[in-house]
Write a protein that binds this DNA or RNA. Structure first.
Length: 485
RNA sequence: GGCGCUAUCGUCUAACGGUUUAGGACGCUGCCCUCUCAAGGCGGUAAUACGGGUUCGAUUCCCGUUAGCGCUACCA
C-alpha cells in the first residue's frame, strides 16, 4: 500500500531575490494540480547555497505568490506538520540521513581538493571524455577515512553510483526515460560547508514531507536518475515525476534575464494584471482543448489536467501577454480599475488633480476599449487631467482651416447658452452651430477635438465634452483659437 | 564531446489513425461600421522539419537523419 495516496505537491524555489516567470508557471501547475485534486500545496525554500542567498527574498517570494493568487497550505510563515519548510533549518536531518547512506555504502567520503577535481575535469574534457569523478576516495580504507576525519580534513560526501545499471525515470509527461548508470557522476550530496546539495535535500524533504508528485522544470530531468537512485538507496517509495517543458526566449533558448523581463515583479510594476500573467503562463505548455482562452484562476483549476501538459518548450511572447491583459482589463470591475487608476494618479504628475470618482469612472468607461493597461489612460489621454500643452501638427495641417476659428467661436457661443448639458445637448448644439456657419458637421467636429485634446484620436467627441464639462471645454476652444497658427 | 528532451502557421496551440480543403488565438492584413483613434463584425495571410517504414489509411505509431534546447558544479 502506497503511503503517498494523499496528493501533496510542492513548489521549491531558491531565494534568489525574485520570482522568475518560469517559476511562476511551475508554482501554478503545482497549485492547479493540488486544487483540482483536493491535494495539498506546499511551499518549501531551497536555500542550501549560502553564496546565493539574498536578503528578504523569501518574504518577497511569498508576497509575489500571494499577488498571483497562489496561496499555499504549508510553508514558511504558515507552518504545517512537516516543517521546517526552510532547508537551511533542516541541516541536522540531512546529516542524519547521510550517515545512513554511508553505512549502506551508498555514499562515501571524498577528501579530494577542488583543485584535483578541476584538473580531473579538464583532462577529461581535453580528450573529449565525459566529465566524471573517478571514485578515487571510494577505495580509502576505514582507517584512512577515520584518520582524515580526525584531522578535520575538508571533505564532501558523494553518491556511490552503481555501475552497469539501467535507471528508469517514470514521468507523467514524457513516459519512461532510461539512463545508463555508467554515465552518471558520483554527485556531491553533502558539501564541504555541511550543507546538502539540491539532490540530497530535495529527495529527503520530498520523502519526509510525503510529496506524492514532483512537478518541476525540465532542466531537472537529467539529474532525476540520481534522485531515483537515492530513493532506492533509502528504500523509499518514489513520488510521481512530471517534468514541465521550458519557457523560452524568442530565440528559443531558456528564458533568461538578458532577453527581457523574467521577474513576476517586473510585470507587476509594468502594470500587468496578475490574472493576465497567470492566465497567459498557464497556457504556455498546457491548454484545456477548448477554444476559450481567457480564464480566471478558478476556471483554470476546474479545467486543469497534468496529462494534457505538452512536451515541447514554449516561447514567452509578450505580444500575446499584452492581448491577455487587454481582455482581462475589459472584464475587470469598474471600481477595481478606479482603485488602480487613482493609485497611479497619486504617483503621477497629476497627483493634485481634483477629478471626482464619478468623472474618473466616465474616463475609464471611455478609454477601456482603447487600452491594454490602466496606465495607458494617463499616458494616452492626458487631456482629461490637464489642457493640451501642444497641438498635433499633422492634425492642424489636415483639419485646421482659415475659417475654423470663426466656426469654433460660433460653436463656443452656442455652448455657452447650454445649461448643464448632456452629451446629446453638445451634439445638437454642434449641429446647430454648423448650420449657422453653413458648413458640414465635420468642419467643426475635428477641429473641436483638436482644440479640446490636442490630438486627432480618442474617445467619442461628445464623451470628451461631457467629461471635461462646459466651462473647461469653452475655455479650451478659445485657447486653441489663440494658440493655433 | 557525452547524455537526455523536443519537433503542427512568425508565436501559443487544437487534432488522442479515418469526421481535415489541418481548427482557434496573438501578430500582420483587407472590408464593414464610424466624428477621430480604438473596440466590434466579416474576411485574408501562414504550418504538420526531412527520409524511411507499419497500416486499407498517417499530423497522429516505429526507426533514422537534421535542427533546436536542456544537463554535464561542493548552483538550484
Amino acid at each position: 500500500m502506497s503511503y503517498l495516496n494523499q496528493i501533496r505537491v510542492r513548489f521549491a524555489p531558491s531565494p534568489t531575490g525574485y520570482l522568475h516567470v518560469g517559476g511562476l508557471r511551475t508554482a501554478l501547475y503545482n497549485y492547479l494540480f493540488a486544487r483540482k485534486n483536493g491535494g495539498v500545496f506546499v511551499l518549501r525554500i531551497e536555500d542550501t547555497d549560502r553564496a546565493r542567498y539574498v536578503e528578504g527574498a523569501v518574504e518577497n517570494l511569498i508576497v509575489t505568490l500571494k499577488w498571483c493568487g497562489l496561496d499555499y497550505d504549508e510553508g514558511p510563515q504558515l507552518g504545517g506538520n512537516y516543517g521546517s519548510y526552510i532547508q537551511s533549518e533542516r541541516l541536522e536531518i540531512y546529516k542524519k540521513h547521510i550517515q545512513i547512506l554511508i553505512e549502506l555504502k551508498k555514499a562515501y567520503y571524498c577528501f579530494c581538493t577542488p583543485e584535483r577535481i578541476t584538473e580531473l575535469r579538464d583532462s577529461q574534457q581535453k580528450v573529449n571524455q565525459q566529465t566524471k569523478y573517478d571514485k578515487l576516495c571510494l577505495h580509502l580504507t576505514q582507517n584512512e577515512i577515520e584518520e582524515k576525519l580526525k584531522n578535520n580534513l575538508p571533505h564532501v560526501v558523494r553518491l556511490n553510483i552503481e555501475i552497469d545499471k539501467k535507471v528508469i525515470v517514470e514521468d507523467i509527461i514524457r513516459g519512461k526515460v532510461e539512463f545508463d548508470s555508467n554515465l552518471l557522476d558520483d554527485q556531491v550530496l553533502l558539501k564541504g560547508d555541511g550543507y546538502p546539495t539540491y539532490h540530497l535535500a530535495n529527495v529527503i524533504d520530498d520523502h519526509l514531507m510525503k510529496i506524492s508528485h514532483v512537478i518541476r522544470g525540465e532542466e531537472w530531468l537529467p539529474s532525476t536518475p540520481k534522485h531515483v537512485l537515492l530513493y532506492d538507496a533509502f528504500g523509499w517509495e518514489k513520488p510521481v515525476f512530471a517534468h514541465l517543458p521550458l519557457l523560452l526566449n524568442p530565440d528559443k533558448s531558456k528564458l533568461s534575464k538578458r532577453q527581457g523581463d523574467v521577474a513576476v515583479e517586473d510585470y507587476r510594476s509594468k502594470g500587468y494584471l496578475s490574472e493576465s500573467l497567470v492566465n497567459f503562463v498557464a497556457l504556455l505548455g498546457w491548454n484545456p482543448g477548448i477554444e476559450q482562452e481567457i480564464f480566471s484562476l478558478d476556471e483554470l483549476v476546474e479545467l486543469f489536467s497534468i496529462d494534457a501538459v505538452n512536451k515541447a518548450g514554449a516561447v514567452f511572447n509578450i505580444e500575446k501577454l499584452n492581448a491577455f491583459n487587454f481582455e482581462h482589463l475589459r472584464k475587470k470591475d469598474d471600481r477595481e480599475v478606479l482603485r488602480i487608476l487613482k493609485d497611479l494618479l497619486t504617483k503621477s504628475k497629476y497627483s493634485n488633480h481634483s477629478l471626482a470618482d464619478d468623472t474618473l469612472l466616465l474616463i475609464i468607461e471611455a478609454m477601456r476599449p482603447r487600452i491594454s493597461f490602466v496606465k495607458d489612460i494617463i499616458e494616452n489621454s492626458p487631456y482629461f487631467f490637464e489642457p493640451p500643452e501642444s497641438y498635433d501638427q499633422e492634425v492642424i495641417k489636415k483639419r485646421w482651416e482659415e475659417d475654423t476659428p470663426n466656426y469654433l467661436r460660433t460653436l463656443a457661443e452656442e455652448y455657452s447658452r447650454l445649461n448643464t448639458p448632456s452629451k446629446d445637448d453638445y451634439e445638437k448644439a454642434l449641429h446647430k452651430a454648423a448650420e449657422t456657419c453653413g458648413v458640414g458637421n465635420g468642419k467643426l467636429i475635428h477641429s473641436l477635438r483638436l482644440a479640446l485634446s490636442g490630438v486627432g484620436g480618442g474617445p467619442g467627441l461628445y464623451d470628451i465634452l461631457f467629461i471635461l464639462g462646459k466651462e473647461e471645454s469653452i475655455k479650451r476652444i478659445y485657447t486653441a483659437i489663440e494658440r493655433i497658427k
